[in-house]
Design a protein around this nucleic acid. Structure first.
Length: 203
DNA sequence: CGTACGATCTGCT
DNA sequence: GCAGATCGTACGA
């Protein structure tokens, strides 16, 4: 099975929740100043645009920051949070519909030494890639990557060659959005249980 | 212009 | 388990 870069069509999908789930098991790659890393996507969250109170674009909010979310699917939306962290999102759907998927967890595959250096650690454990702030740090993503196209060769995704059985993918409510009222209860977060497949790759 | 706070992580207790 | 770090963004005055 060949590892194929995800195309524009993939990101134009209108059901952002479906994309969030489908991204589990895909591979994310970064080439930051010639330093290449890749990792398996293990946790995501969907943000469903203008009707989703948890979304930055709720109620059609358009500001300098959120403008990126209105771009065509396949665009990177990177923003700064808690004064410390950059969070990486993938814009989906067609232009002017501000849907996005937050990447919350990865397992390092290639460029492991480089990633360890970036987080100043000696070795990984299975928690090293869970948390959206850790994801960007491991991959070397920061605000310079806000707005770039995932068709380019800086940050891109590929199909990978792993398919997780549906029963291994858990849907749950999203994290850290208590202010979103009822929308905080929506099962828009997806993650794969640490399982034998991962153990085999990772240990 | 001033201020409140957030899609969090780490290290120490 | 909790406080501290640390700053861009949004919004109201």
């Amino acid at each position: 099975m060949i590892d194929i870069k995800l195309t524009r069509e993939y990101y134009l999908e209108s059901d952002v929740v479906k994309v969030a789930k489908d991204l589990i098991g895909k591979i994310i790659h970064s080439n930051i100043e010639g330093e290449i890393t890749s990792a398996l996507i293990t946790e995501t969250e969907a943000y469903a645009g203008v009707t989703d109170r948890a979304s930055h674009a709720y109620n059609g909010r358009r500001t300098q920051r959120t403008e990126i979310m209105y771009k065509e699917g396949g665009t990177a939306y990177v923003y700064f949070c808690y004064g410390i962290h950059y969070l990486f999102n993938i814009v989906t759907n067609v232009k002017d519909i501000p849907y996005a998927v937050l990447i919350r967890g990865i397992y390092p595959l290639n460029g492991v030494d480089l990633m360890l250096r970036r987080v100043n650690k000696l070795k990984f454990d299975k928690n090293s890639g869970n948390g959206p702030g850790k994801v960007t740090k491991l991959l070397g993503i920061d605000k310079n990557h806000n707005g770039i196209s995932l068709m380019d060769d800086t940050i891109w995704l590929s199909s990978g060659n792993i398919t997780f059985n549906d029963s291994l993918i858990i849907a749950d409510k999203r994290v850290g959005i208590d202010y979103a009222g009822d929308d905080a209860l929506l099962p828009y977060r997806f993650y794969v249980k640490y399982n034998d497949v991962l153990r085999k790759i990772y240990e």
